[in-house]
Design a binder for these strands. Structure first.
Lengths: 243, 243
DNA sequence: CGGTTGGTTGAAACCTATCAACGGTTGTGG
DNA sequence: CCACAACCGTTGATAGGTTTCAACCAACCG
């Protein structure tokens, strides 16, 4: 069955997902990778539902090792807006977007493993030209996705928003080898999707069903399959990497 | 009458609005200001409705001298999403958000005057530690406003969105001395507000009227007055500068 | 087994968009 | 000076998309 097939997804290529991500963002010398790895603390783990940013305001940046998290803002009356999804390999706290802000929090959506940068060696990292450039590219992608998010919320229908987000997640997961063709694990509740898409839980549910009825996607049991990526992309004007 | 009173707003303090902005973003030495000014081309002007970014992909960054512009993305079917407003004093092209992107354009909303940075002297500028830091602060504010935009579009009602945006604009204009107490010029069509707020033109009109009926704001003839800033801020959970 | 969680469904109310028309203002040319 | 067109704001009626409330179901777990 689909769910079982996708349950365990051992990282294929490199041992560390963030290494793969950085390499995808531009040539990083092997020597630099070594420096980087030496500058990291041992992995920390968080449970789903835990907040992992605000604890310490001046907390050092870290890399997502495994699991899903999100950047979110909470409103006083309980409303919540997910600003961005944080996937394995993503750096958090390196760029402006993910830097600690009082009104913004990082929330673990699944069990999450991260590796923080040693405060004392932060300079070492930003000193590496290759790593530095890779981080800048990653930051640029992050920024591009935030713009996409604005467009989705402001000017796209529920149907388009869902399609667009699913394509974005597929694209990002593909980069770190966490897809099987058109299928990927989607370990988030529909409630979280709703808070990312600016919709109600119920409406996300119905919209996903509509996409399924149209033979475009299949979302079930924590996994998604994009049955017709091209048609999906046409529906929502999706541009991979977003030009 | 209100409109006439606000028509001409001679910049009060410094001659250059971007100098004021940068100084507001952190102490910049007088010597650095001189270097900066020397690195700028003569002012260029654009008419309302003109696109001033995409013309040249590798175009140098510039400062807004006067007038309003916006960063927008156009969808294939004509839908448009305004990502950010660009006001006098704002730097465009210095940070990731405003850097040239294929899918994103900079549109003059009023007659606009800008000063580009001389390509050859770009290094001089980014070499100044003070200027550099000030630009970083400005970039951070820009980013914060983009996050606010996501929250507005995703999780606020039309009423709240309007209130929030008006407060943001008032705050930014106040920083550059373009407010008269609670009043300020708002030289944009409701259609533009609609594209920024993710609403229809008609609904923006009605929502502004509702705000007026509630004695919170007055929007007329290209000008706005915030009659009760505190109540407005409470309505939409506005945080100045956004913590 | 009962309780909990997350997904699904239905009906109704609400918000917002769309369509269409009107009015005021401005600028222009006869 | 007036007629006219163009533009922008305004208003009403209607349709449609979304939310809310409520209930039900299935899977999972102690």
């Amino acid at each position: 069955m689909l769910t079982t097939a996708l349950r365990a997804t051992p990282s294929a290529t490199s041992s560390k997902s963030f290494v793969r991500r950085l390499e995808a963002c531009g040539g990083v010398a092997a020597a630099e990778i070594a420096i980087l790895e030496a500058a990291l603390h041992a992995p920390e783990t968080y449970r789903a539902g835990e907040l992992l940013h605000p604890p310490r305001p001046g907390a050092p940046p870290f890399f997502m090792v495994s699991g899903w998290a999100c950047l979110a803002r909470l409103l006083d009356d309980g409303r919540r807006q997910v600003l961005a999804f944080l996937l394995p390999g993503d750096g958090v706290g390196f760029d402006l977007l993910t830097q600690s802000r009082e009104s913004t929090s990082v929330l673990a959506l699944t069990p999450v493993k991260v590796q923080r940068v040693r405060q004392s060696l932060l300079g070492e990292i930003t000193g590496c030209p290759g790593v530095n450039r890779a981080l800048a590219v990653a930051s640029d992608q992050q920024q591009t996705r935030l713009i996409d998010q604005v467009v989705r919320l402001g000017r796209q229908t529920a149907y388009e928003r869902c399609a667009h987000l699913l394509l974005e997640l597929h694209g990002r997961l593909a980069e770190i080898g966490e897809t099987q063709g058109d299928a990927f694990r989607l370990p988030v509740k529909q409630e979280v999707l709703a808070d990312a898409l600016g919709l109600s839980l119920v409406h996300v549910n119905r919209t996903l069903q509509q996409l399924r009825r149209d033979q475009l996607v299949e979302v079930h049991g924590g996994a998604a399959i994009l049955k017709d990526r091209q048609a999906l992309a046409a529906t929502c004007e999706y541009r991979s990497g977003s030009t």
